[in-house]
Design a protein around this nucleic acid. Structure first.
Lengths: 175, 175
DNA sequence: CGGCCCATGTAAATAGTTACATGATTAA
DNA sequence: TTAATCATGTAACTATTTACATGGGCCG
């Protein structure tokens, strides 16, 4: 929908700060573009350049636009993400289910280490947000970053609750 | 770590209410058990039964316990989940990035429909939590459900912010 | 007798990651 | 001259999903 554009640019312009680290991988990006082309949803035009590698510019077709509209309007498969993958795709949370198999001190340590990671992540999302605001990115996109930020701030609070629960258990139950 | 146990029971006892719908699929469960067995992390013993299908009971071995401890203590790959997959695995959020390609009324409608789904999900997680409390499940596990609940409640608020942002844009900018 | 629950799996397909391969320009 | 950035891609592997396949017991 932001055509014409080429693979490398799509990759580097979209949420750059966060995707730099966990970026769309080439092994998925280029085959995906090829597949969209085969399906007639985008068309390729090569931009020949002397001062750098050639660029394969893709433009969306009418049927591409239709397919996009169908995707955007559909509600299919939206539940998994926010209800379920949220836990399933979170290795730390999965480990938390087995926290009782660690000594309380070890468990507490694990939480502290993780807490620092979350704080680091908050700072990075904040920087990404500022950067996006400066670049006058669509407000909807910035709101997505807000979502991520609120998630992480909630997570910090939750980690503290978890820590408190462990300490409490340690002091009372003792095994 | 809760051995001996068999596939079908693992599947149905673990977070049953939520997993009923998005359950571990058989195509991954049984091959995974086989793989763990091949690696010597678990051992199989068949429980022959007359009043129903036989059960393949698996018990964890010493090396299984060691591997489990290594996994639990490691911090590897924990970042992706909470920083990145959180957005990437959420089809609704991805669509929100393209909300400007919908008419404001359509966008608002999409948000309202999603909001109802989130409310439904909250009720189901609450029921799961009560059920787990009655069954005296480990408090760590219940805290995971709390995490999910807090995520969803945060999401409701965020959806309202998103809705407000769209209404504001519609009234001022027009286009 | 039909359908659901129990219980085991396999096969085929799709999705996703990692590593490899190439080659030009530009900045330290 | 070495490393980074720009730009394209493929190959091999791993993960995940979906659909299929089987068969007994139990309930209405």
């Amino acid at each position: 929908m932001n055509s014409p554009d080429y693979g490398y640019n799509i990759k580097s312009s979209f949420f750059s700060r966060i995707l730099d680290e966990f970026g769309i991988n080439d092994g998925q990006l280029y085959p995906a573009l090829k597949k969209l082309e085969t399906r007639g949803l985008i068309v390729k035009k090569i931009e020949y350049r002397d001062d750098g590698p050639n660029r394969h510019l893709f433009s969306i077709t009418d049927s591409g636009r239709e397919e996009f509209a169908r995707w955007l309007e559909s509600h299919e498969g939206e539940e998994r993400g926010f209800r379920y993958e949220l836990i399933r795709r979170d290795p730390f949370l999965l480990k938390c289910m087995y926290l009782k198999y660690l000594k309380p001190a070890q468990a507490g340590n694990k939480i502290i280490i993780h807490r620092r990671e979350v704080e680091k992540s908050i700072k990075e999302y904040q920087a990404a947000k500022e950067d996006m605001e400066n670049r006058k990115v669509d407000s909807e996109r910035i709101l997505i970053v807000d979502y991520a930020l609120q998630c992480q701030e909630m997570r910090l609070k939750w980690l503290d609750e978890l820590k408190a629960a462990i300490v409490k258990k340690e002091n009372s139950g003792e095994n």
